[in-house]
């Protein structure tokens, strides 16, 4: 078990390092922020030079990278070039707004998706199953911005039941949560169904039913634990995506979260903020993957052996 945990930890660290490196190189090599920030024909060169010196942009790229890694390790991620405060502060100020819609969404889509997927698997090939799976395909293929706009068109523009955007009241949360939950539940339902169908076909399920275990117990005691691994995988991915998963939906509903901050910072080339967001999303992803990996070990003892890890 110790070896299992340590290899997973090591892999998480390597992934994190790749993400940090990627974030740094792409953003720095892509262009000179000084030129984007000032109009070179209007600004005296001394100002641009001073700007470059202040942000360390006059150093060779590998020096910048080395300094960057050291700074990251010290938790110093630079200042936002637009708002005159640290980039970390800027990003974390937006975090609650994103969590307000993403956390309820995470639980809602998991609950709906798992329930629908289970029912579809238990009544396989029934009308019910087909209805759920068709709905799920739609949830898959309709892009979030189309779904968001259609919901806004119906509930905000036509029926006028809900506000179409903003951050003032709890009512403003309903449409973003609904959009994200519908799309997410479709994915969860599909995974749950296929995982359940596979387990339902195994001999031990038939044995349990044959020896007289009640059907409810067969599902909760025998089928669900065995179908849990793929479902937990999807849940882990969605959990890692809690911070960055609402970029489009936040834009549609003018929700002042991380996603919108990312889009606006990218448009104004606010390097430090973009890096912090990339790192935050990367850390969330890596952490939840790690958590899920460890959960696998708990759910399924077979995963603990070193052989299974390479598979």
């Amino acid at each position: 078990m110790l070896q299992f945990v340590s290899t997973r930890l090591l892999r998480a660290l390597v992934t994190l390092f790749i993400i940090v490196t990627f974030a740094f190189f792409v953003l720095r090599l892509a262009g000179d922020p000084a030129e984007r920030f000032f109009d070179p024909s209007q600004t005296p060169p001394e100002v641009i030079d001073a700007f470059r010196r202040e942000w360390g942009l006059d150093q060779p790229i590998w020096v910048q990278f080395y300094r960057y890694i050291i700074a990251v390790l010290h938790g110093d991620l630079g200042n936002s070039m637009r708002e005159n405060r640290s980039a970390v502060e800027t990003v974390f100020a937006r975090l609650p707004a994103t969590l307000w819609i993403m956390v309820p969404t995470l639980f809602l889509k998991t609950a709906i998706g798992v329930a629908a997927g289970m029912l579809a698997a238990l009544y396989r090939n029934s009308v019910f199953d087909r209805a759920i799976m068709s709905a799920s395909i739609f949830g898959f293929t309709v892009p979030p911005f189309v779904l968001a706009l259609v919901l806004a068109l119906v509930f905000a523009v036509q029926l006028r039941w809900l506000p179409s955007g903003g951050y003032a009241t709890p009512y403003h949360m309903i449409l973003p949560i609904a959009t994200l939950s519908i799309a997410g539940a479709a994915v969860v339902a599909r995974y749950t169904r296929s995982a359940m169908v596979e387990v339902l076909g195994r001999p031990f399920v038939r044995t349990a039913a044959a020896k007289g275990v009640r059907s409810g117990q067969v599902v909760t005691k025998h089928v669900l634990p065995n179908a849990a691994v793929p479902i937990v995988t999807v849940f882990g991915f969605m959990m890692g995506n809690v911070v960055g998963g609402a970029v489009v939906v936040e834009s549609v509903f003018s929700w002042p979260g991380i996603g919108r901050l990312l889009v606006t910072s990218v448009q104004s080339r606010d390097l430090a903020v973009v890096q912090v967001i990339l790192l935050l999303i990367g850390v969330m992803m890596v952490l939840s993957n790690l958590l899920i990996d460890l959960l696998y070990g708990l759910i399924d003892p077979r995963m603990r052996s070193p052989k299974a890890q390479t598979a």
Partner: peptide
């Protein structure tokens, strides 16, 4: 395989947004 794993760990949309706006 490590790069594949790193790619799988990061939502492509986020990477794309960052790269695009910085590359023009």
């Amino acid at each position: 395989l490590t790069i594949v794993d790193a790619q799988l760990a990061m939502p492509f949309m986020i990477i794309a947004i960052a790269v695009l706006a910085f590359l023009g």
